[in-house]
Design a protein around this nucleic acid. Sequence first.
DNA 1: TCAAATAACTTATTATAATAAGTTATTTGA
DNA 2: TCAAATAACTTATTATAATAAGTTATTTGA
Lengths: 249, 249
Amino acid sequence: MTDQLNRIPQYQYLYETLRQDIIRGVFKSGDLLPSESVLQQQYRLTQPTIRQALSLLVQEGYIRKHQGKGSIVQAIPIGLGVMSLKTHAINADEKTANLGELSSEVITTTILTKPYLCVFPNELLFYPTDETPDTQYYCLDRLRSVNDSPVFYEKLILPNRYLPNFPRQRLANRSFFDLLRTKYGLVVTGGEQKIQALAADHSIAGQLQIKQGSPVLRLEKRIDTNKSDFSFYSLLFARTDQFLLQGRF
Amino acid sequence: MTDQLNRIPQYQYLYETLRQDIIRGVFKSGDLLPSESVLQQQYRLTQPTIRQALSLLVQEGYIRKHQGKGSIVQAIPIGLGVMSLKTHAINADEKTANLGELSSEVITTTILTKPYLCVFPNELLFYPTDETPDTQYYCLDRLRSVNDSPVFYEKLILPNRYLPNFPRQRLANRSFFDLLRTKYGLVVTGGEQKIQALAADHSIAGQLQIKQGSPVLRLEKRIDTNKSDFSFYSLLFARTDQFLLQGRF
DNA sequence: TCAAATAACTTATTATAATAAGTTATTTGA
DNA sequence: TCAAATAACTTATTATAATAAGTTATTTGA
C-alpha cells in the first residue's frame, strides 16, 4: 500500500480507516463489517494484517468478532479514561430507551487556568516514579458545568514532552482526549484510578457551588498511553447529586 | 504441541504458562522474558503464535514490549474490575516506597448472603438489555472489613449460566475474580462504571457502621468477560475516610 | 583510551498458505 | 412441505518466510 501520510504501518492505517468509518456512521451498531476476505481484496492486504487491524478495533470496543458470522459493529465506546455525565434516571422506560444521556442539557467546559509549567502537585496520591522531583509538567484546571451549574472541577497534569505548542491549543468545550489523539498521536491504553467520597472542604465547596460538608467525589487517575514514557494524571472533584460520572474500564 | 488438557489453542496455552510463571515469581518485575526466538525454540512454535500469546500478556498489563530490547515484566497488574483498598498515605517516602498497601492490616470478606436466585435488582442503574424481565440471576452480598471495621458492602449479580454448582463455591476471604477465572474460565475483559458520592442513608450507615449522612461512595459496574453473553454486575457502597478504592481501567 | 562502525541481538511488519471450527443459505429427498 | 444434508460463507489457528527497525555488545582504528 503506497503513498500514505507519515508511513504508518498498514494495519494501523486500516484500523484508523475502519474506526473513522464507524464513527462517521458508515457502519452502524449491529451492522457487520465487510468480511475479512472482502477487506483483503479491497485493501490488497493479507489475512494476518487484516486481523491485526481488526484486533485493535476489538480491544477498543468498536467491534465484536463472532466466529463463523462476522465482525459486529458496536455502539461507539466511551473512550478509556473519559468520564461522561449521566443523569440518575432509573425508571425502566428510561433505562430501556437509554435516555440517561444529557441530550437536552447544555454542557460547557471552562478552562480556569490555561496550561502552565508546574512541578508535580503534592496533593496527588499517584507519583511519577521515573522523574526527578523538579521535572516540569503542564498543569491546567478546568470546570465542567451543566446549565451553568458546576458539576466537576478537574486538574490535569501532563509530562512536558511530545506536546509542541500545547499551551496554544483550544481546550474549552472540546474533548481533551480527542485533542491528544488527533494532534499528538497519543492514544489512551488504560491506567489506574483512586476513588473516594469526601465531605467538601471550603475550597471545593466554592468551586462546585455546594454547601461545605456535602458529599463530593474525589477521583484521581494515572492515564497511560501508547507511548510508554507518557502517562498523564487527572484529579477531579465532582458533585453527584443530580448527575453521576460514567466511564469505561 | 501435543497432549494438552482441554485442547486449547497453543497461543492460549503459552499465554497462561507465561502468566503463571510471572505470578509465581519465575519472572519478576523488571526482568526480560526469554526473547521471542528463544520461546520459538523452547515451545516449538512459530513467531506469529508466540506473538499472539505475548500480545495477550501486553493487553492485560503483565509485560511491556520494547522494540529491539525485549519483553519487560511488569508488576502484577490489578485485575480489571477489581477494586483494592489503599491507605491515603501521601507523604513522599511512603509514595516512593509504594507503601500504600495494607500489608499490616487484617482484611476479611464476609458473605452476608450466599448466592441465591433472584430477578435483576431494580436499584441498579445498569440494565441487561438482552434478557426478559423475569430472567433469573445469582445474587450475593458481601462485606469487606479491615481490622473488623466494615469498609465496603457489595452486591454481586451474575447471569445464571456457565456457573455449575456456583452456590456451593467457597467465596469468603477469596478473590471472586480468581474463582471465575480458574473454576469457570471466565476472564474479565472490561466494562463500564457509574460513580457517585452520596450521604449515607439509614441502611448503608448501618452496614458500614458510620453516621447517617456521612459521605459514602456508590460504585456500580457492568463487568464484561471473554464470553460475550456473560456480563455481571456489581453494586458497591464504601466508606473512604481511612481507605480509598483503587482499580485499573 | 575512546568514539565510531559493525555485528548480533531484539521486536515489528507483512506476505503466503493450509486447515479448523462456527454460522447461514441452499439443495435434496422423504 | 419440511427436516436433514450439503455447500458456501464466516472467523480462528498455525505454519513458513523475508525484511524492517530498535537496542546493545563487540570490534576497529585514530
